[in-house]
Write a protein that binds this DNA or RNA. Structure first.
Lengths: 216, 216
DNA sequence: TTCCGTATCATTGTATACAATGATACATAT
DNA sequence: ATATGTATCATTGTATACAATGATACGGAA
């Protein structure tokens, strides 16, 4: 059963490598040789190369042509900046969403909130579920913005942020407040109050950041 | 001399493909087969694959696993959204730059402005030169923000924007105003007036967009 | 000893070979 | 006629072979 476990990475080298870099398996400045990484993951150079090239585009790896690939990593300052930028963009996104959201999307958001509260109230391990629902809430907002670009940029940021969150404490207290904030954003959108929606979404992300205990 | 011209694309497949997509050589929804594209550019599948994977990350190509790569292209709406988002981020960037800029960078900006005015006043073809200097001005601002993330995001947007600009008229009139706006931004930064710098940079990008004759 | 040139090697860049997957067309059964 | 199963093929996914490049170590000359 474990016999072909190493094969499970086929097609997922990129994701695996990114996770390893963000979680610190590979240290800053470390050189990533195509062969050794390939052996590590049980694949040949080709998939590794593709992954490294993509990671370069994401800024996690620096590639010097004909020389090598080096881990860039992501610093505390990076995370802070990502949140600052993201808070502004989530605000703009909420504004656009207010202007373009469909009935279906409104219903979806309400469903997500309903489920969130349900899982929050449950005694047993809800952290994962709540986190997934949080992601879905934001994803629907991105789509509702009706902007391929906005969706793309924010989704990118979200990926980093998910990693950063793993390290942080997903305090139940914060989760409750977060859902409350989501509800308020949705209310503003339903009232077609774009200014309010923008401001609430903006502050929401700043609050999330504050909870990570990152210096302003 | 032209004998090895086809070889000139080695190592630049990614850039070439992006340019071809953005300039319309490959039409929306068109399937990009690795072999045919490779033959077109005189390279094998491997570099083409890498390029396609990277273009997917940039959102210019949609890859369906085990099926194919399809041109996504960039619409008028995308360009409009990019400018809107960029204007906000350039504003924030100018704010951060006000707080972190070094003496060397200030000097560099002044030099760029000096050169810009010089080339603008010259009779003969200055469009290219002025455009390059415009790019350098913004690049220095990105660096001055002291944020790897900000630099990364704005540089990405800038790439798209450069393409969009090619299609637009680089009117001499606009170039003059643009340089004037740059000067005002620099003045605000020198006075350490972050609010003013942010507002000016924000409006500057909106003005650039307006000049492209794109609907709000 | 120090500097420089050269040979060797490790690593990346590219091409090609092979495997896996999905699409298509055709034959057959109902 | 339609639906379904199967064979074939085109295309992608992966591995490997070969080419080009840069780093290193060694040896000889000043």
């Amino acid at each position: 059963m474990e016999e072909y476990e190493d094969r499970s990475l086929r097609g997922k080298v990129f994701e695996k490598l990114r996770e390893d870099i963000l979680s610190g398996v590979y240290k800053e400045k470390e050189e990533l040789r195509e062969v050794s990484v390939g052996e590590e993951l049980g694949v040949s150079r080709t998939p590794v190369r593709e992954a490294l090239r993509k990671l370069e585009l994401e800024g996690l790896v620096r590639i010097i042509p004909n020389k090598g690939a080096y881990v860039t990593g992501i610093t505390q300052e990076d995370v802070r900046d990502i949140y600052k930028i993201r808070s502004i963009l989530e605000g703009l996104c909420a504004r656009w969403a207010t202007e373009h959201i469909t009935e279906e999307q409104l219903t979806e958001l309400e469903e997500i909130l309903l489920l969130s509260e349900f899982h929050l109230k449950k005694k047993d391990a809800c952290a994962e579920q709540v986190s997934v629902l949080d992601g879905r809430f934001h994803k629907v907002l991105y789509e509702a913005s009706n902007s391929r670009i906005m969706e793309h940029v924010l989704s990118d940021f979200h990926k980093y942020v998910k990693m950063a969150r793993r390290m942080s404490v997903g305090s139940k207290n914060r989760a409750e407040k977060s859902i409350q904030e989501h509800k308020e954003i949705l209310e503003a959108i339903k009232k077609k109050d774009a200014d309010m929606a923008e401001q609430l979404a903006n502050r929401h992300i700043m609050n999330v950041m504050a909870n990570l205990h990152i210096e302003e």
